[in-house]
Design a protein around this nucleic acid. Sequence first.
DNA 1: AGCCTTTGACCAGCG
DNA 2: TCGCTGGTCAAAGGC
Length: 273
Amino acid sequence: MTLVSNMFSDHPDEFKSFSQLVAGAMASPAAAAVVASAHQTPVSSVGGGGDSLLDPRSKQNRPTGLMITQPPGMFTVPPGLSPATLLDSPSFFGLFSPIQGSFGMTHQQALAQVTAQGNTVQIQSGSSTQQQTSVTEVPSLPAPVQDSLQAQRVDSAVSVYENRSQPQNADKPAGDGYNWRKYGQKQVKGSDFPRSYYKCTNPACPVKKKIERSVDGQVTKTIYKGQHNHEPPQNNKRGGGNNNGSSESSDIANQFKTSNNSLNKSKRYQETS
DNA sequence: AGCCTTTGACCAGCG
DNA sequence: TCGCTGGTCAAAGGC
């Protein structure tokens, strides 16, 4: 984080376009992890362990095209961390504690607090082996899901370091602590790659995620979204569109809307696994 | 048998 | 009002 922050602030004229910026970021795996997270809310920034991302010079010097808006309550974590392992990580709560005033709280307390807030967590992931910067948004987990994931998180915590150096597999994303079922795929406007839609297979789990993958199978973007426990159950009406009653999902969808011409939904891509 | 993926169709939101 | 777009459903087929 600090490395990139310094890169922006020390060389304000060095990156003038998105491609230049990405190229520069890719030169450093650590830098790649924060390319798209340049603009953070205060909550987002605490993960950097300080004020490195709050440097006003950084904001001024970045091209506007790079700016990615984020809903409040999102923050970034290093590549390779899964939602489940993230929740189990002491550093995860360290990310929240400065804002929440929860220094010294237990994992259970912090977990409950985060869940109650219904925050969405955004993870930026990238590696030297990936040509795209991955964006992962992770929802806070509903309590039933947290319970069901307790055992899984033990294994996830062990494997997190192994995963860091490996490309993500969107088709078999069980490594993030969830079991997913794909329920749709579509070519979306403004994206070069098809977007796949996954649901958590756990009946008590409202979490969904969208994954965009490049033609060579690399994950370019992962967006998690979840529903709060107090929200009404989903309408099972066929073809419901945004009829799940979740305002959050609309916000996230709008976050990635663009004005480019579309490739119709009929255009499908065959994913390889 | 059960779960998963694929994919055409449907629907709501939005400009 | 209408067309575009993203998100979802559900039948069909595969494993």
